[in-house]
Design a protein around this nucleic acid. Sequence first.
DNA 1: AAAAACCTAACGATCGTTAGATAGGGCTTG
DNA 2: CAAGCCCTATCTAACGATCGTTAGGTTTTT
Lengths: 187, 187
Amino acid sequence: MTTNSREAILAAATLSAQAHGYLGMNFRDLAAEVGIKAASIYHHFPSKAELGAAVGRRYWEDAAVVLEAISDEAPDPVEALRRYPATFRLALQSGNRICLFSFMAAEFDDLPDVVKTEVLAFADVNVAWLTRHVSAAGLAPAGDSEARARAIYAAIAGAQLVARSRSDVSVYDALIDGYRAAGLLPG
Amino acid sequence: MTTNSREAILAAATLSAQAHGYLGMNFRDLAAEVGIKAASIYHHFPSKAELGAAVGRRYWEDAAVVLEAISDEAPDPVEALRRYPATFRLALQSGNRICLFSFMAAEFDDLPDVVKTEVLAFADVNVAWLTRHVSAAGLAPAGDSEARARAIYAAIAGAQLVARSRSDVSVYDALIDGYRAAGLLPG
DNA sequence: AAAAACCTAACGATCGTTAGATAGGGCTTG
DNA sequence: CAAGCCCTATCTAACGATCGTTAGGTTTTT
């Protein structure tokens, strides 16, 4: 292949994990998507657990970049918080997928340890960003910023879950509107 | 067995589905839990899909009963809404399990149709109860009761997910407190 | 004796994984 | 410059485990 196979495998594995979870992701379908055979994946990743961990790591690294981009584009913390829910919209819209975390949090107890670590890191990255902006926006009373950040993050994870069960992005949008109307998110 | 095997299978299957999902639930472990062999399950349920559907149906039927009991014990709708989050706490506390819906909503696209139907019914039962009480409590502006009910339900599903990933019920409690502080749930 | 409940044994599919062969590009060396 | 070699990337083929499921026989209950 002219392009990097390792990257193609990571990309296909990410999509598969968002649609079918870690358990539902399998080497044969993955390889077919990339255009190689299942055994060839082992030339790039030593095991499914390590592939899953690599997917998770890349996922939160990318998320960190996206979140910083939002902060840069929207210096006003309230405006940045308004844009936050949209980062989880794309996956739902394209293939009724959900955030890696939301799926793997459900599967958590059956996940290899190396995967668990990366999944939790994704939540940490999001909560840290949210805490910073909730604090700057004065959205919650002093000292309650992190608690509010965690609440926002969990609520959005739930919204993805519910929207997926209806195979309808507009359900996600309506739930986010509901969070805004209730005061959880800035209107 | 002196007790009803069909009920024992349903009970074991419910616990397994809450811990491992529909995909992660398997006949051999299930049978071992009940004290029979895997093939014997087919004397009670024609297939895994039908067992899953039976589990889902029983699950929302039981939920409907529990919710009506709350309404009866707490005639004040605000008080009933205050008690609502506790109904999802028990599973987390005992075995780090989550609500059937929360797990199967993630797996949704890979679920047999008969199972999908019952999973959605669970959400409908909860949203209907919540809508009624949100409306009676005047928690949301007129006409927004159902939207608020959906928001509450999704937020609680997300809280379970996050709490499970930390294997810590107190994370769930803290998130519910966060929802209350934000005004999503009545304080 | 009939029916319900359960068994053993196995089938075919799918899974992660491994062993071993092959093809080709780039490097070293005579 | 050409010959030899190694490294990367891929392949075919298969292993052992696990899965849902089925056929057909045995036990238990009524």
